[in-house]
Amino acid sequence: MEAIKKEHELIVAVSPHVKSEETVSRIMWSVNLSLLPAVVMGAYFFGIKAVLVVSLCIVTAVLSEYIFERALKRTVTINDGSAFLTGLLLGMNLPASLWSFSPFTIHVPIIGSFVAVIITKQLFGGLGYNVFNPALIGRAFLLISFPRLMTIWTEPSAAFLSFDAKTTATPLGIMKEEGVGKLMEVFGDKMNLYTQLLVGHRAGSIGEVSALALLIGASFLLFRRYITWHIPFSFLGTAALLAWIFGGKDPATGKLILFSGDPVVHLLSGGLLLGAFFMATDYVTCPTLKKGQIIFGIGCGTLTMLIRLAGGYPEGVMFAILIMNCFAPIIDRGFRTKVFGAVKAKESKK
């Protein structure tokens, strides 16, 4: 009955007119679900503080979307899961150390969620009209506003309910400051380093630490075809290639040795996997055409490695994706298909 009733409803929508069971809210909630393993791993490593930071972000994001839409008398769209996803992604990109009362830093996630939902998304017209990825703008805003608070990384602690944690540097931070040699010293041997990075036993943002959990979520999205391989694989491939070519340094002199870098460390550390699979692939802010998506991914990968290897910040995924977001419309225009019949005779022969 429901299906028949729907058949007869007049649906006015922009093309392409594909009939499918997939709706925005279904996809959004699936992405939320696919992020669950990474959040669980983050909670496992960083304890209750991680859960509290992520929940705070989600609650603020959903609440600010609700209040804003009510205030402007728009349709309230909190059920489609996009505000939830923004809050979740933002929370996953923050350090767990933000849940602390002395010094008071609870307002930091709240401000981030507010900026992400209101300024980045709602002021531009709501879901589908935002130029930038909301969660990443929220994080960029916080990183620039609170550079010190946003980079207090804690060691993964064993006790779940413990609020105390030792601060330490992220693998990328160690690599930036002291080189790969120091990283090996901290983690023991290479095999141990890879395993720890894969499982996620390292300092970092809540959701980015466990590469394995992120890969599980990503493969779910790829399997359900909510995302295609184009952006993540060109992103990761470019980053790995550049890490291999330019990532190696002579430990004694610090001089660059070409083709000696370690792409695996670069791929597994920082927010690269989280960014490549879950944030660069945001439907609204990436190019729609496949060729354009590959260019987009290559651009993201290049910028990420440029910032990581030659920039001031240890991690560049966030800025890389945000910069490429600006170019998404231009990339799309460049790969626009020619209108049938509008091609000149000369050009059609090529």
């Binding site: 008071f104 401000i111 805003f141 620039i144 506003s145 609170f146 550079p147 608070l149």
Partner: peptide, 12 residues
Amino acid sequence: DTKPLLIMILPA
């Protein structure tokens, strides 16, 4: 006395 939003006095 708490830390304000540093970004607002930067060009961005």
